[in-house]
């Protein structure tokens, strides 16, 4: 993939310089998103960059006259893989949003307004999707069930997902992860401290490693 067009980077992604790097990060994020029990912060900028690239490559290929070259075939295969990667990433996120849109929106607002480390859980389009979807869903329930309930029973609690006990397999990618604390099951007030060496693998509660996964320092398996 050396003769790809170079791309204009978003300002946020100054640190990522090459298409390979974008793809590598996308793959990592896709894998993490697939394995994580809850929604991770949005990486839609990456998706946008890749979509841009796909378009560029497609244009390149269609300009080629001899369609039978092996090089073209390889490019196309790669293109298909990237398309799958991005589409599946987006689909996976949509599934998670659809599973509990209200909770997702709530969390998004919480984390956005976090003073120390504001993070956008949803991208703009995703937020819009979540809101519209939540509305449609609410309307469906309203029309079929809630409408007929006595006043006292009209309120339905939003289920809160609990990821406390979700275990994940995680692989350490970065040197400076350091130590991670895990609740000690024998003594609930105590905590265990685990050392996270580079490229070691752990079966560990998701909550303990969540920040590292979100930063891309750990990879879920």
């Amino acid at each position: 993939m050396t003769d790809e067009p170079t791309i204009d980077m978003d300002d946020d992604y100054d640190d990522i310089t090459t298409p390979e790097e974008v793809l590598r990060k996308m793959t990592l994020m896709w894998q993490n998103e697939l394995c994580a029990p809850c929604l991770l912060p949005s990486q839609m900028e990456l998706v946008d960059i890749l979509l841009d690239q796909i378009q560029g490559m497609e244009d390149d290929i269609s300009r080629q006259r001899d369609k039978m070259q092996l090089r073209i075939s390889l490019h196309r295969s790669e293109l298909q893989r990237i398309s799958f990667l991005t589409s599946d990433y987006v689909r996976c996120r949509l599934r998670k949003i659809e599973a509990n849109p209200n909770n997702v929106i709530e969390e998004h607002n919480l984390r956005k307004n976090d003073v120390t480390n504001p993070i956008e859980l949803l991208s703009e389009t995703e937020l819009k999707f979540a809101e519209e979807y939540a509305l449609a869903e609410a309307e469906l329930f309203e029309k079929t069930v809630i409408e007929f309930m006595p006043v006292a029973l009209k309120k339905i609690p939003v289920p809160k997902p609990d990821h406390k006990n979700d275990m994940v397999y995680a692989k350490v990618l970065d040197d400076d992860v350091g130590n991670v604390t895990v609740t000690d099951w024998r003594d609930l007030n105590a905590e265990l401290v685990l050392e996270m060496e580079k490229s070691s693998c752990h079966l560990i509660p998701f909550e303990s490693v969540k920040p590292y996964v979100e930063e891309g320092k750990m990879q879920l398996l």
Binding site: K128, F129, E139
Partner: peptide, 29 residues
């Protein structure tokens, strides 16, 4: 009605992806 709304929501979302939109129904495997 829910189906139609969902359908529209999804379509709008797809349209908003990238420059020309993406058909998420493709590339499923």
């Amino acid at each position: 009605q829910f189906f139609n709304e969902y359908s529209g929501t999804l379509a709008r979302f797809q349209q908003g992806l990238g420059e020309g939109g993406v058909n998420l129904l493709l590339h499923t495997a």
